[in-house]
Computed example of a mutant assay.
Amino acid sequence: MKRRSFIQKTALSGGALTLGGAMANANAPARPKEKHAFNLKYAPHLGMFQNLAGKDPLDQLHFMADQGFTAYEDNGMAKREVTLQEKMAKTMTDRGLEMGVFVAHNIHWKEPNLASGDLDKRQEFLNEIKASVEVAKRTNATWMTVVPGHLDLRQNMGHQTAHVIESLKQASAILEPHNLVMVLEPLNFRNHPGLFLTESPQAYSICKAVDSPACKILFDIYHQQIQEGNLIPNMEACWDEIGYIQIGDNPGRKEPTTGEINYKNVFKFIYDKGFKGILGMEHGNSRPDKAGEQAVIDAYKEVDNFL
């Protein structure tokens, strides 16, 4: 998905000599003497630190853990080779990184699918959910992202909502036996015009209608700042159905401290609510190269300092 393509294109350069004169691995950054202890489970993604860590996915996971991050998210995990999924899962287990969301299905950005009530499109979605169960098992994942797709402009909104709820009920029946959770992501009108699911109250009412532990809300702070604002009260109103949170400042969809959102206050609210889940760092870096990557780490240390 284009909106989730944040990977920078530059490569790590250089190497270093050890004190004994032997050449160190040029792609292995020096590990910090002491990890930072974050208060919440912030989850970077591949590419966010590739200049500091190197391009190899496993090296990037090690780097995240070295910095003190305790989670990782990967929207594209389902499309990675099975052998790489397994290697990444082992590395995450070894380094204490909890797996966050991956995208569970092919999102229909321009045409209606779940909202249409078309049975073939519903079956396509359910087949993708079944396949995502296997991805989740391999990668020790609990959450997977679901976006119901485009509006059906030829149908009443009530009918569309009923179609979406029925599809999600059937998907929940697939996921429940495996203790897996699909998280519904409302998206903003500016970046993604014409989509069915846009606001947190809408997602809340759908989750209540589906009535399953396998169907919760993905509250993306960036999207909801644009779509509805009033972040903390809206999160409070939806709290019992929020299963996952994502981060991005606005404007720009970069790391916290680069835009208008007071992330220190938002994170304190989330912490005070006792949230034990993952907060996905679904944003780009505001500056390029190693300096920009270090700036992301420093920004999270700053806004996480709310106690």
Rank of each mutant, 00 (worst) to 15 (best):
Y204V: 10
R287A: 15
D220Q: 01
N75L: 14
F69C: 04
D249E: 05
L61Q: 04
P213D: 01
L40V: 00
M48N: 07
T145K: 12
K273D: 02
Y244N: 02
D298V: 00
P57T: 11
F125Y: 03
G15E: 09
N230C: 06
S286T: 09
D74L: 12
F63T: 04
L114S: 04
M23Y: 12
V103A: 11
A299P: 02
Q294M: 13
K33S: 14
P44V: 07
N179S: 13
E185P: 08
E260H: 11
N127F: 06
P177H: 08
N27H: 14
N39R: 07
N106E: 15
V183C: 12
I242L: 08
T161K: 13
D298F: 08
L187Q: 02
F6D: 09
P201F: 05
A209W: 05
H45R: 12
L40M: 05
S13N: 13
S116R: 02
T161R: 14
K290R: 15
L279A: 08
N305D: 15
A203D: 07
A28S: 14
D120E: 13
L19E: 03
K2V: 12
V181H: 04
I245R: 11
E255H: 02
L195W: 01
D304H: 00
L58K: 13
D94E: 07
F275R: 02
S172W: 03
Q227N: 11
L184R: 05
P251L: 04
Y300Q: 05
K35A: 10
E86P: 04
C207W: 06
D56Q: 07
Q160L: 07
H159Q: 15
H223W: 03
W143C: 15
G47V: 03
Q123D: 08
M182G: 07
A141H: 00
T161Y: 04
G252T: 10
G158N: 09
A16E: 14
T198D: 13
Y204P: 10
